[in-house]
Amino acid sequence: MFGEHAAFIIPSYLISFVALAGASLVIWRTHIARKKELARMEAQMDQANNE
């Protein structure tokens, strides 16, 4: 498949996939972490307000 230039075509697609999927994953994980931290901070603030 891809003839004699497969050694150039496959790495091109691989690099693109890894870079774009990696960026998406990092951004998604950051979102989950920040949402958790915000929820924790809000709970702390509520607790402090009640005290």
């Binding site: 891809f2 003839g3 004699e4 230039h5 497969a6 150039f8 075509i9 091109s12 697609y13």
Partner: peptide, 8 residues
Amino acid sequence: QQGYTVLI
């Protein structure tokens, strides 16, 4: 001209 490298 380019063969399959056009995929890039």
